[in-house]
Computed example of a mutant assay.
Amino acid sequence: MKKILIASCVVLALTGCANKGTSVDKDAQITQSWSVQQLYTSAQDELNGKNYERAVKLYDILQSRYPNGRYAQQAQLDKAYAYYRDAEPDKAMAVLDNFEKKYPKHENLDYVFYLRGLIAFNEDTSFVNKLASQDWADRDQKANREAYGYFNTLVTRWPDSKYAADASERMSKLVVAFAGNEMAIARYYLKRGAYVAAVNRAQNVVQHYQNTPFTEEALAIMSTSYAKLGQTQLSQDTQRVLQTNFPESKYAEGWKADDIPWWRYWK
């Protein structure tokens, strides 16, 4: 009985391989007489129709039959985009890396860095929701910094690129994300009485992310932490900076350095 079962499994496995091969051969047979332009147009239609797997197959066929020329080059870029839209970031990055190695001076290299930035930027699919709620604690900072690096390379090397404006806008959002992450950590330390660590994180926001929405709160955390550490003069000096720059600040209302629970404002 065991031999029969084993034999059956082998037959099924071979049948599966045969079916798979038939599927691949079918694509090759259907497109056998297609010109490079017809292959590319059909792949584009599949891409626009969100049939990403089918688009990738057609791009592969195009590249294998017509490995040289502008269609083959563009097919690589479009294939990377198809992988990106199909939630296959690693495959998309691999295609882009290969493209840059083969064509280090290509006229569309700005798009390579733009797409890399998009892949890293959207690695966390809930980022848009977090952006709206300013919930930065769980955002992948490694992905943030990679995205910022790609976008920064784009706007630096190709300032007139058609992708530069969008890249710059995304960089601004990423800066807010960096500041928000620092604030999330500063709040964590303050709530747990790690006042030196809270000061360091909040100070980093004030020094490096002044144009973000978190500067006001960072100053409040610094003032409170200094007070808890017995650094009265530093606490008062920081409070004056807070009141000068944010005269209507909710953190300045009824401020008492020794006991005001700043975290009551945080959700």
Rank of each mutant, 00 (worst) to 15 (best):
I6N: 00
V199A: 05
A18Q: 03
L12G: 14
D237H: 09
K2R: 04
Q243D: 09
E100F: 00
L96D: 13
A147M: 09
F246L: 07
I185K: 08
Y66S: 12
D86A: 08
W262T: 13
Y83A: 01
T41F: 05
Q141H: 15
Y66E: 02
W263D: 08
I119A: 06
K101H: 15
A82M: 05
Q233N: 12
V11R: 07
R170P: 14
D138Q: 15
W158N: 03
E217W: 00
L62H: 08
D45W: 09
G230L: 10
A143H: 08
Y163V: 09
K162Y: 14
W266K: 11
D140C: 00
N204A: 09
L115I: 04
D60N: 10
V199W: 07
A137G: 03
E216Y: 02
A7F: 12
L5I: 14
Q243L: 05
R192V: 10
N200G: 02
W136A: 12
A198R: 01
Q210Y: 04
C17S: 03
R187Q: 10
Y103N: 08
P261G: 10
T224C: 09
S64K: 13
N98F: 03
C9Y: 05
T15M: 15
E253V: 11
A186D: 11
P213M: 06
A179C: 07
S64I: 08
Y81T: 11
A198D: 00
A13E: 03
Y81I: 04
Y265V: 11
A184G: 07
M171D: 06
G149L: 07
E169P: 14
L58A: 04
K79P: 01
V112Q: 02
F127K: 04
N204Y: 12
L12Y: 07
K228M: 11
G254Y: 10
S23E: 07
A184N: 05
L234H: 13
Q210I: 06
N200Y: 06
T41Y: 02
K267W: 02
D135L: 10
G117P: 00
Q76Y: 01
K105Q: 11
Y188I: 06
Y188A: 00
D237Y: 01
V112A: 00
L12R: 01
Y163E: 07
S35G: 09
K173V: 11
L219H: 03
Y111Q: 08
A72S: 15
R187K: 05
T156Q: 06
W158K: 00
K250L: 04
K57C: 13
M1F: 15
T41L: 10
